[in-house]
Design a protein around this nucleic acid. Structure first.
Length: 660
DNA sequence: AGCACGCCGACT
DNA sequence: GTCGGCGTGCTC
């Protein structure tokens, strides 16, 4: 009797075998109901064989094979195998995570009708600039795998390059996968794609889509009915029968990295997928990740540069650094910035004040006894939100009412320290009573709908001053915006996380790009206590390549990625001592000595040591050789699984870790 | 991960 | 005397 090898959604690094009455390799890739333990589960048939490693008599008979969906193809399995091996994640988990929830249910779902899209005339393609044409022509779809980095400042017309390449792929009968960091923050990109290709099936795939819509879109993509798939990181695992091109917009964006479950980088998985299929991949950014930049410098990736803004009238904004040590500040705002805003108000132009800290104030404190509003569950301060008079922990989400007096000494005179967007908004309202001020952060914009309404109001000229967090920095064209002020950026300069400067540069570059996109000249004022920091010098000079070269040199000297390859073992338990003891045991395992070129650091508490009542530690494993690290990790993982630990202890391995 | 079985404290 | 705590072991 044939034996089915079945992948199940379990945290186990193995497959399960079942006997089937009649099955052939034609069934590989189909879903199957199988008895498991005392219940039943849905799995995916990964192989059909004559025998099994297990005693045949112990194999249970497989249940119904579901045939409402064509079999998942071999290249999809190979993609999941790669991710599973690379990220040390169980194969079944990787595989089933790629399916919409409806397809993971035991009962075959009822099929829904897909409605036909109505046809509208396509929006005409604008003429390409010379640099755009060079970029488009550099990518040869017939040449097989090639990765290209498209480096272009905001407004240089990267999207038009994507659209031309998409057009070409569509003409060749191929599907295109376009990945974006957060689809809800860039509704206009989706609009642009649909407007340009009105007769082509365009579907979006992201986590905020309702279950039914996500399944419908996934099916359309898998069936090859949709030729353009526009999605967030999770879309990289969609099986696409005719995939011919992958485009990753804002490739540096941290949201391509999944931060829970399987901690994968959708960008890296995408490069593997393109390589596996022998198709081109285009990575676009104004501030590429150092990894991609290094790959372009070493010619592993092609480098395509758009130096100029597509609209020649729109010059790059003038960036000025304001040394706040030499000036009096009012509520953290310099007189120069106030004057700049005043000027814009008089001219009927918009200003944006960027402060990447939401809430009213980051902490509430008692000057008499030194009490501060700490979260009881996390190693973090509770942020004051004055709008609803609550203290909120931005890490675990717990919150409570603002106390009227100090909880420890009873002092009535407790005050907020520091500034968030709400406080800034209040102060700006006092300063500019005649101005219309709009605050844009996760507290004021909670849904895609609200975000669209907000964008419309900004575009419609309903706001004179925008106050906001990095939400405001994401790819938007505000034609009347001519001044950007940046507050409180310095803290990232000296952060323990060595990736912080790279992120700050990208963020500031992005927010600076909001200023002066049309015919109006833009100005950016950055308030800092470190005006001579090379990061600000690079911003003033609009010199990403110079800044990247400096950072890469530092990374090389320090032996950091991309010059070293890392994996982080993290443990969390109610007591830090248990987490650290576990990590110490992992650091002392004999498998480490059995592998060459593996360096294990000492266990340390994480920067956010306590989160939601769990105390967390981490242990870094490093190698100068990617293959050496990859050979080591599965052995290490297995040995770690054998360590005796308190039952409440949880652990995971993160390959290519982000947070330090 | 679930979900069993399996041995020690406070309840009808 | 039982209900139930979660410690450990297994799932083809």
């Amino acid at each position: 009797m044939p034996v089915l090898r079945v992948a199940l959604d379990l945290p186990l690094h193995r497959l399960f075998d079942y006997v089937a009455e009649a099955a052939s390799t034609a069934e590989i890739g189909l879903r199957v109901r199988v008895p498991f333990g005392r219940g039943e589960r849905l799995g995916v048939i990964v192989d059909v064989q004559d025998g099994s490693d297990w005693p045949l008599a112990q194999l249970k008979p497989a249940g119904e094979i579901l045939r409402d969906l064509p079999p998942l193809p071999a290249d999809f399995f190979r993609l999941c195998e790669f991710a599973s091996a690379y990220y040390q994640a169980p194969f079944g988990e990787v595989l089933l995570q790629a399916l919409p929830v409806g397809l993971k249910r035991l009962d075959p779902p009822t099929r829904r009708n897909t409605r036909a899209a109505k046809s509208t005339p396509p929006v005409a393609a604008p003429e390409l600039t010379e640099e755009q044409a060079v970029a488009v022509n550099a990518i040869d779809p017939a040449a097989g795998f090639a990765a290209h980095l498209l480096h272009g400042v905001t407004g240089s017309g990267k999207t038009e390059v994507y659209l031309r390449l998409i057009e070409r792929a569509l003409a060749a009968g191929q599907q295109v996968l376009l990945l974006v960091p957060e689809i809800n923050l860039t509704p206009q990109l989706e609009g642009r794609v649909r407007a340009r290709f009105p007769d082509t099936g365009v579907v979006s795939l992201h986590s905020e889509l309702a279950e039914a819509a996500r399944e419908r879109n996934w099916r359309a993509a898998f069936a090859g009915e949709a030729s353009i798939v526009l999605g967030t990181r999770l879309a990289i695992f969609t099986p696409l029968p005719r995939l011919g091109l992958i485009v990753i917009d804002e490739e540096h964006d941290p949201s391509f990295k999944q931060q829970d479950g399987m901690r994968y980088s959708a960008r890296d998985v995408a490069v593997f997928r393109a390589h596996q299929l022998g198709i081109p991949i285009l990575l676009g950014s104004a501030t590429p990740s150092l990894e991609s930049w290094a790959n372009a410098q070493s010619k592993r990736y092609g480098l395509l540069t758009l130096h100029e803004r597509a609209n020649p009238e729109a010059s790059l904004p003038a960036v000025h650094v304001l040394d706040t040590r030499k000036m009096a500040l009012q509520e953290g705002v310099s007189a120069a910035l106030v004057a700049g805003i005043k000027e814009r108000l008089a001219r009927g132009e918009q200003s944006l004040v960027f402060l990447n800290r939401r809430g009213y104030a980051p902490v509430l404190a008692c000057p008499a006894c030194g009490w501060i509003s700490r979260c009881t569950r996390c190693a973090a301060n509770m942020v004051l939100h004055l709008a609803d008079r609550r203290l909120r922990c931005h890490h675990c989400g717990c919150e409570h009412r603002v106390p009227k007096a100090c909880p420890t000494c009873g002092n009535q005179d407790i005050h907020p320290f520091g500034r968030g967007t709400q406080r800034l908004e209040d102060w700006l309202k006092e300063q500019f009573p005649e101005a219309r001020i709009l605050r844009v952060d996760r507290d004021s914009v909670k849904s895609r709908k609200q975000w669209e309404v907000m964008l419309e109001r900004i575009h419609g000229g309903e706001a004179d001053i925008l106050v906001g967090t990095q939400m405001l920095a994401k790819g938007h064209d505000f034609p009347k915006l001519t001044l950007v002020g940046v507050l409180g950026a310095d803290s990232a300069l000296f952060a323990a996380d060595w990736r912080a400067p790279e992120r700050l540069f990208a963020q500031l570059m992005q927010v600076a790009g909001r200023a002066g996109r049309a015919e109006l000249k833009g100005e950016v004022l950055i308030q800092t206590e470190y005006p001579d920091h090379p990061l600000y010098a690079a911003l003033v000079a609009h010199d990403y390549p110079g800044f990247a070269a400096t950072l890469l040199k530092e990374r090389e000297q320090a032996g950091f990625p991309p010059y070293a390859f890392q994996a982080m073992l993290r443990a969390e338990a109610p007591e830090m001592a248990d987490s650290i003891a576990f990590l110490q045991a992992a650091a002392a395992l004999p498998v480490i000595a059995e592998h060459e070129n593996i360096l294990i650091y000492d266990p340390i508490p994480m920067k956010m040591a306590r989160l939601a009542n769990l105390e967390r530690g981490q242990l870094l494993a490093e190698s100068y050789s990617r293959p050496a690290l990859q050979a080591f990790l599965p052995c290490w993982r297995e040995a770690i699984a054998g360590i005796k630990a308190p039952s409440k202890l949880r652990w995971h391995i993160e390959v290519d870790p982000f947070e330090f």
